[in-house]
Design a binder for these strands. Structure first.
Lengths: 201, 201
DNA sequence: GGGTTTCTGTACCGACCGGTTAGGATCGTG
DNA sequence: CACGATCCTAACCGGTCGGTACAGAAACCC
C-alpha cells in the first residue's frame, strides 16, 4: 500500500520504517511479546509511541510485521533450504541454518518464533497463537517438501514425510532452546549432526 | 522449618500450603512467569494476595518454590531416569518421561522449565536466569551419569558424555516445544524414538 | 477468660501497562 | 503563500502491575 502513489501528499515521515521494524524485531526476539513493553520498543526504534501507532497500528500488528520480517530475514534460511536438491540436504540446511541464526553474533540468542511467546498471559494470546501457527506452518512446509522427495524417488516409497518433518523440526526447536541457554555454535552444530546421523535406516 | 515445633502458637493458616503451591505451579506452567499475574495466581490458589505474601514472600520466591515442586513432582522422571542400569536406558527413560509429562492429560502442554521464561522483560530476569540454570543443571546431571557409564564400561571408552547429554537434552527441549504446539503423545514419542535410533554408532 | 500471636480481608500504594487525544510544527502541493 | 495532510511532543486515559498498611477475627497458651 502507498507504493503506487508517485507524489505523496502531506508531510513525509522522518524515520525509516524498515529500520524501525528491524529494531522492534530485535526487541521482540530478545524479550518476547509480553516482555517487550511499548517503552522498550519505541526506545529501540527511536520514535515515539504516537509515531509507532500511526505507522503500525498497535503492538500486536507491530509484532506480526516483525515476525514477517524475521521470516524473510534471519529465518530465510528455511525457505532456501527447501530448494536443496535432496531431502537429506534439505534437512542438513535446515538444521545448519537454525544453528547459525540462533547464535547470530549481532543478535539475541535463540529463535523469535520459539521464544516470542511460548507461554503467555491473557494479553499475549494473539501472539502466542500466531507463533504456534508459525511453527506448525514451518513443519508443514517441510512435510510437503519431503512428500515431493518421495514422489521424485529421492526418499524411499515407504518413508513417512510427516514423521520425518516432525523429527527435524523437533530437533530445530530444541536447538533454539539450547541457544537461549547460552550454548555455542559448535556445540549446537554437533547436536544437529548427531540428529542427522541416523537419518533414515 | 517449623517442623520441630510441636504446638504452634497463634492462629493456624486456613489453607493447605502444598495445595496452594500446586495450583500456583500449574498457573506458572501454563502462562509463564511474567504471564501469570498475582490475580491469576491467588485466584487459582484460592487465597488473597496478603496470604500469599505471608506464606511465600513474593512472586519470585513463589516461582522458585513452584519450580522445586515441579522438579520433585511432574519432572521427577528425570531423577528416576538416572537410576536406570545402562546409559541407553537412561536416555530412553528421559525422553519417554519428557513426552509423558509435556502431554499430561490434566496439565498444561509443555514443560514449565522450558516455557516458564524463555524470553522475558526486565522484571522476569530472575525467573529467566533461574530456568537457564535449571536446564543446564539437568544437562549436567545427565552428563555425569553418562560419565559414570563410561567408567563402568557401559559406554565405550571414547564416548563423550557431554556431547551425548547435550544431544539428548536438545531433543527433550524440542519435545517440550512441540508439545506446546499441540502435538500428541504418540507423535512426540515417535520423534523421541527416531532420536534414539542413532544412539551411538 | 485474658493475653498473645498470627492469620485474613479490604483498601490502598506508586509505577507502569497499552492506547489515545490535542496542538503545534513541518512538509509537499496548488 | 495558503491549504491540506502528516508529522512530533506531551499530557493524559482507565486498567493492571507487584507489593503493603491496617484492622479485625480466630486460635493457641496460661
Amino acid at each position: 500500500m502507498g507504493v503506487s502513489r508517485s507524489t505523496v501528499i502531506g508531510r513525509p515521515r522522518e524515520f525509516d520504517v524498515d529500520e524501525a521494524l528491524e529494531c522492534a524485531m530485535r526487541v521482540f526476539w530478545e524479550r518476547g511479546y509480553e516482555g517487550a513493553s511499548l517503552a522498550d520498543l519505541t526506545g529501540a526504534m527511536g520514535i515515539t509511541k504516537t509515531s509507532m501507532y500511526a505507522a503500525f497500528g498497535n503492538k500486536e500488528q507491530l509484532f506480526r510485521k516483525a515476525l514477517e520480517r524475521y521470516t524473510e530475514g534471519p529465518a530465510s534460511y528455511a525457505a532456501r533450504a527447501m530448494e536443496e536438491p535432496t531431502a537429506r540436504q534439505v534437512a542438513e540446511a535446515l538444521l545448519r541454518g537454525s544453528v547459525r541464526t540462533t547464535t547470530l553474533p549481532g543478535g539475541p540468542p535463540g529463535c523469535l518464533g520459539v521464544q516470542g511467546a511460548l507461554a503467555s498471559g491473557e494479553g499475549g494470546r494473539p501472539a502466542h497463537d500466531m507463533l504456534v501457527a508459525w511453527r506448525n506452518d514451518a513443519t508443514l512446509r517441510v512435510e510437503e517438501r519431503f512428500r515431493r522427495a518421495v514422489d521424485e524417488g529421492d526418499l524411499p516409497e515407504d518413508a513417512d514425510p510427516r514423521r520425518l518433518a516432525r523429527y527435524i523440526m523437533t530437533v530445530a526447536f530444541g536447538i533454539a532452546v539450547q541457544a537461549a541457554n547460552g550454548l555455542g555454535r559448535d556445540e549446537l552444530q554437533d547436536s544437529a549432526d548427531m540428529a542427522l546421523r541416523n537419518w533414515l535406516p
